[in-house]
């Protein structure tokens, strides 16, 4: 099994601007958090190696821009993703409501094979804020996830490092399950006949 050795997973993080995508990634990879908001321009990239069921997996995390004006990377950008993480802010109702469109957008642009089985993970971030500010209940979020084909749901705080590790572990695991062996068949042998010789090589 060739793929036993090395696996690299392309993980794309999507969501409204300001929900904490970059913070989540930074918390996960660098164990750092900054209160300061800095808009992501285009995309950020981080790499992290993790162990999933005794396999060494490299996660190539593509953190995207939430602000529309910075989303200029085009269709090809999402191509070949192994997992898509949808992030919203539990204290911001709008960020939750737009999850639908983020998901659709991704499925259109990445056009993965078998979109119904594509691994998504939903993360409700910023649960460290006081309860009174919370706009989206866990119940509501889980109901949405259920309706979209049982998407795993996590509530996290990038600031306090709550649940971040677990969320990404699930991301890696689910992405890995998608890895199926590609059939590799030996191509047909070349037939060398004098008649067909024009097909081979170039006659110049």
């Amino acid at each position: 099994m060739a793929s036993r050795k090395k696996v690299l997973l392309k993980v794309i993080i999507l969501g409204e601007s300001g929900v904490g995508k970059t913070s989540l990634m930074n918390q996960y990879v660098n164990k750092k958090f900054s209160n300061q908001y800095k808009a992501t321009i285009g995309a950020d990239f981080l790499t992290k190696e993790v162990m999933v069921d005794d396999r060494l997996v490299t996660m190539q995390i593509w953190d995207t821009a939430g602000q529309e004006r910075f989303q200029s990377l085009g269709v090809a950008f999402y191509r070949g993703a192994d997992c898509c993480v949808l992030v919203y802010d539990v204290n911001n109702a709008k960020s939750f409501e737009t999850l639908d469109s983020w998901r659709d957008e991704f499925l259109i642009q990445a056009s993965p094979r078998g979109p119904e089985n594509f691994p998504f993970v939903v993360i409700g971030n910023k649960i460290d804020m006081e309860e009174s500010k919370r706009m989206i209940s866990q119940k509501r979020a889980m109901a949405w996830c259920q309706s979209k084909g049982n998407i795993p749901y996590f509530e996290t705080s990038a600031k306090e490092a709550i649940n971040v590790e677990q969320a990404f572990q699930t991301i890696a695991k689910n992405a890995l399950q998608q890895e199926v062996e590609v059939e590799i068949d030996f191509p047909d042998p070349i037939k060398i006949d004098s008649d067909t010789s024009k097909d081979f090589g170039c006659a110049c």
Partner: peptide, 30 residues
């Protein structure tokens, strides 16, 4: 690969520099 996954790097472990591959793919796809 055109998805931005590393295949080969002349120097360094290609998976450890896979962030670069992402950058390269992003530039190309832009």
């Amino acid at each position: 690969s055109s998805a931005g996954k590393p295949i080969y790097a002349r120097y360094g472990d290609e998976s450890r520099i896979s962030s670069y591959m992402g950058v390269i793919q992003a530039i190309i796809s832009f």
